[in-house]
Amino acid sequence: MFLQHLLNGITIGGSYALIALGYTLVYGVLKLINFAHGEIYMIGAYLGFILISLIPAMPPFLQGNVILMMMVVLIVAAAICALYGFYLEKICYRPLRGAPKLTPLISALGASIFLQNFVMISMGAKDQIFPQTIGMKTITLGGVSFTLLQLVIIFSSIALMALIYWFINRTRLGVAIKATSTDPYMASLVGINVDTVISVTFMAGSFLAACAGVMIGLYYGSINFTLGYLGGIKAFTAAVLGGIGNVPGAMVGGFLLGIIEALGAGYFSSEYKDVYAFFILIAVLVFRPAGLLGKGVNERA
């Protein structure tokens, strides 16, 4: 039982973590809560769905190889979604650089409403059903039931997180992101193009959110245009739980949130499932005001 709940929690937690990374990255460089990020995740899921429904029209060598095909779908969907992130920043946030702190929040919400309704009108309000593909066979091992797809999803999210960790810490662009989030002004002085860094950050966050979207779509089988709302809130909570602005924090926060919810709903009442997460959040913040892995809040003098 316990192991089963743990596994359930880790599966959903992986997707929370991927989305949370988007919040955290953007918060790092812009000190801004990107409220439209949940919608980006939803768009990613839809792009995955559209691409998968195009599969019959794809060249035969792709159709033969399920794994390769899924990789292609994931990467193409995430790449297009990264463009969404790019344009989101350009249209809704860039003109508001230097505006009062809460202003971008409103344009983010505007963008969120716009994207939701754009998808609803163009794709219809009905749930879109992913074709049942691979690995849906149930395997039971020591009382724990899981599907192959579930394992693939857990490992892919961990791999993606490793990838982003490597990107942030080991590449020039990643280091530039780190520099910008520490001090944008100094970063611009040492020759970092802050605008480019911000665009890249948005694209990276959207890329991960889209991956989460496609995987959620594949795993649960149905998506609709309201997906981004709950996903967004949960992931945001996860990001704060781990310490917003902190990359490993978002990962830890995501998994932790998933596990808390699964255990809470499993051992207590599922009616209060969302309450446990928020209670834990409040409790954590009372003792560690900057989240689990966050560093102390800077006091500006």
Partner: peptide, 28 residues
């Protein structure tokens, strides 16, 4: 009392949680 010791966006999320908790209690 507990929440206002927090800063900025952390406080914002705690209030978000409060709103959701209230709604869930109202439902249950």
């Amino acid at each position: 009392i507990p929440a206002l010791r927090l800063k900025g966006d952390y406080l914002a999320v705690v209030t978000l949680g409060f709103g959701e908790i209230i709604r869930i209690f109202l439902t249950n």
